[in-house]
């Protein structure tokens, strides 16, 4: 289209990959090297003995760090900072956790169902004292299903960009502008998939509702935790976590 030249699409694609590379830690090669470095039986037991509140604080801390990287990813994405500030906030508030969940598949080992957490790979049992087995299981299932797609780093980068730039989020002020950016991202993603003979991927992606459900489940579990531990949240949870979820 006249508003979307081939050059523009090319630049956008390079930009998505660079933004992803610069803001995703650890790097893919390092994750690959460490994927069998799992917690010992004793270390798992030590995590399981931690009080519920401490485990929630730790998980909120790690999640917040991941979200800060997602904010940096968004800021480097061509077009994001040209949106009005209301819409930047709306997109991040609604999408940051979803992007973290997509990014999590990079740090997930589907062969033993473990995820990198505080330096080593951990199975669901390590998170027992959180008291939300169902949520943890669903998050692991989601990571497992993304890993089955054998996504390349470029594909993860585009998925994250497309999850974030969603013109259907409520309270957007310049919906058309977001939709145009989203459209350009989709064109660039399709071009990448055609070049790499991966067109079939689009039909195999998990439905958007699945990510949304995981995020609502997280907020529900947080509310249940707050009922059990009133007053715990202001004390030790990161302010950004409270701002996004409480």
């Amino acid at each position: 289209s006249p508003t979307c030249s081939g050059m523009e699409i090319e630049l956008l694609a390079q930009d998505v990959l660079r933004s992803h590379r610069e803001t995703s830690q650890p790097r893919a090669e390092e994750l690959q090297q460490r994927r069998w470095d799992t917690f010992s039986r004793e270390e798992v037991c030590a995590y399981q003995r931690k009080p519920m509140q401490e485990m929630w604080e730790r998980c909120a801390g790690r999640l917040t760090e991941a979200i800060q990287h997602v904010v940096e990813f968004a800021k480097r994405l061509r077009g994001f900072m040209e949106l009005c500030q209301n819409d930047q906030i709306v997109l991040l508030k609604a999408g940051a956790m979803e992007v973290v969940l997509v990014r999590m598949c990079r740090a997930f080992n589907p062969d033993n169902r473990t995820v990198l957490f505080e330096g080593k790979y951990a199975g669901t049992e390590l998170f027992r004292s959180l008291g939300c087995h169902e949520l943890v299981g669903s998050i692991f299932d989601f990571a497992q299903s993304l890993c089955a797609l054998r996504l390349s780093e470029s594909e993860v980068a585009f998925l994250c960009a497309i999850v974030l730039i969603n013109a259907n989020r409520p309270w957007l002020q310049e919906q058309a502008k977001v939709a145009r950016l989203r459209g350009r991202l989709e064109v660039a993603f399709r071009l990448l998939l055609r070049r790499t003979h991966r067109e079939g991927l689009l039909a195999r992606l998990p439905p958007a509702g699945r990510l949304r459900a995981l995020c609502s489940q997280h907020v529900e579990q947080l509310q249940a935790f707050r009922r059990l531990h009133p007053g715990a949240l202001p004390a030790a949870f990161p302010p950004l976590y409270r701002e996004l979820f409480a």
Binding site: V71, L92, E243
Partner: peptide, 14 residues
């Protein structure tokens, strides 16, 4: 509202 997100977005290199 969203004070921290605002701050992170405004910082050149947060």
């Amino acid at each position: 509202k969203h004070r921290i997100l605002h701050k992170l977005l405004q910082n050149g290199n947060s």
